[in-house]
Design a protein around this nucleic acid. Structure first.
Length: 257
DNA sequence: ATGCCCGTTTGCAACGGA
């Protein structure tokens, strides 16, 4: 079984690339972030034709998330956003696929550590953690994945000195990431030996991809119960080489049956 | 030092992103 996450930075623009990717990577479940589509514009027919059931939670211009499940795998108990956390922004979609609770998140960016958006990010992260604690009891087989907008450690940053204390790298954000791990989740990517300078995002500017100057901010966390089944976790850089690419690229985890 | 790019907006410059 394979699960994946991809911040597509506008599904309207990236749908052909997504369909192309799915044709060569027929994952069982995929969560998308930054679809930037209201629900009436979601490409249901195109994705069904590609063999996927879809659930989505979108809004105009910003944010927007989706959960795709391969036909036959099942897509049940769909939840949009964090229960009990009033939020104008569409950032979470969850569903049960093939007996696994799949939670897709587009974590707030936070903009700058002294901004109102950072305060919102902290509140959002706390609400996510509180909700997940219960979800893990209800669904021991659980995967949390998405664009976390947090680089967990300095080795996840191309230039740690330049990024020290900056957004994505503050102690507060990293503390929240560690708190998620403390719930009994594991960073699937770090369960395996990985090449140094592995990133999931590269700035559009400054030839950052060509120079491999990026951040690892897209993550897949697996619950304790699933950990023995995790066989591999990789970042697929190939879509970042597309024409008109997203600035993020997919992360894929493989579980044994 | 600053912006560099990209997607979006009842748009044609400004914003949010990371």
């Amino acid at each position: 079984m394979q699960l994946a996450t991809w911040n597509v930075n506008s599904l309207g623009v990236r749908l052909p690339q997504l369909l192309d990717w799915l044709s060569t990577h027929p994952v069982d479940a995929l969560v998308l972030q930054e679809t930037k589509l209201t629900d009436d514009k979601f490409p249901v027919a195109e994705l069904q034709a590609a063999g996927y059931e879809v659930a989505f939670h979108g809004q105009k211009t910003y944010n927007g998330v989706a959960l795709l499940a391969r036909a036959g795998a099942g897509l049940d108990e769909v939840q949009r956003n964090i229960p009990g956390f009033a939020d104008e922004q569409a950032r979470v979609i969850a569903g049960t696929v093939g007996g696994i609770r799949v939670i897709g998140g587009y974590f707030p960016n936070g903009q700058a550590p002294d901004s109102d958006k950072f305060t919102y990010k902290m509140a959002w992260l706390q609400a996510l953690r509180d909700w997940l604690a219960g979800e893990l009891v209800r669904h021991p087989r659980l995967v949390l994945m998405g664009d976390f907008n947090i680089a967990p450690e300095d080795r996840d940053v191309h230039d740690p000195a330049a990024w020290a204390g900056q957004i994505h790298c503050t102690p507060e954000e990293r503390g929240h990431f560690q708190a998620l791990l403390s719930l009994g989740l594991h960073d699937a990517f770090r369960l395996f030996e990985q090449p140094p300078k592995s990133w999931s995002w590269w700035d559009y500017r400054n030839l950052a991809f060509r120079k491999n100057q990026g951040l690892r901010i897209d993550h897949i966390l697996v619950s304790q119960a699933l950990r023995p089944q995790v066989k591999d976790c990789t970042i697929d850089k190939q879509p970042r080489r597309n024409e008109r690419p997203s600035d993020h690229t997919p992360v894929v985890v493989t579980l044994s049956d």
